[in-house]
Simulated assay, not measured.
Amino acid sequence: MNTRSRHAGVLAAMASALMVIALAMPSAAAPPSTTPVQAQINAYLAAYPGGTQINATEISYANGKFVMTFVTAGMGIAAADCPSGWFCFYDQVNFGYPRGKLSSCGWQDLSWWGWQDRTESVHYNMSSGSVSFINHWTEPDHSLDYTLFTISTSSRTDNDVAPYRNMADHVYRFC
């Protein structure tokens, strides 16, 4: 048997062995499917760039100054669940998610994070101070802006901010 025949036989045997191994291994060609929550996060980050996904259900902006949670960790009836040291605003009445949260003092524009005109319920879980939810009127200098409602240590929750649903554009936290 010449060298060429031996090499052809060895190559054929190796090709057959590799084919058997390849068929026995699970395919890695298809990436895992995107979950509905991940699809929401991807769409939000595309619409409002500058955020960072920090876990499977949350994104943050401005190095954690604003955090948005897409789904609640718990199951069952919605309840005010703002973590201690934050004030939260919810996209639905009765504390329905998504939820935004802030803790900084002073004036903040909710449009920085795509949250303008979408607050329907609120929870203030801070040890002092208050926060006013403000509607932006027509003047670019904010001279005609006005307070819609306020939450504080003496009135921590509002499960329905009606008649001011989906009107808050800014917040001002008094520390």
Rank of each mutant, 00 (worst) to 15 (best):
G85S: 05
L18D: 01
C88S: 05
H136K: 15
M68G: 02
V37H: 10
R99N: 03
A30L: 15
N94K: 09
A17H: 06
C175E: 05
L18A: 08
A39M: 14
P32C: 06
F174Q: 13
F149E: 02
T150Y: 02
P140F: 03
M167K: 10
V93T: 15
A15F: 04
T72P: 13
M1V: 12
S16L: 13
T119H: 02
P31V: 03
H123K: 06
P26C: 04
M14T: 07
T52I: 15
R4Q: 11
Y90S: 02
R156A: 03
A46N: 14
I77T: 13
M25G: 03
N2H: 07
M1W: 08
T72Q: 15
F87Q: 00
C175M: 05
T34L: 12
D169W: 01
S111C: 10
M167V: 06
S143F: 08
V122W: 00
S33E: 15
T119D: 02
A56W: 11
S130N: 11
E120W: 04
I151G: 01
F133D: 00
G114H: 02
P163C: 01
W137R: 14
S84I: 12
T150A: 03
S104Q: 15
H142K: 14
L45H: 03
N63R: 13
H136S: 14
T72Y: 11
C82K: 01
I21D: 01
G114M: 00
A56G: 15
F87Y: 10
N55C: 13
M19G: 08
R99A: 00
V10N: 01
P31E: 05
Y164P: 00
G85A: 03
P32A: 09
T35A: 09
V131C: 03
Y44C: 08
V20M: 06
V171D: 01
A13Q: 08
M75F: 15
A47L: 14
G114Q: 00
S152K: 01
M167R: 11
A12C: 07
V37M: 11
M167T: 06
F133V: 03
Y164G: 00
A39T: 12
G50A: 06
C105V: 15
V10R: 04
A28G: 07
T150H: 02
Y146V: 09
R118P: 07
Q38D: 12
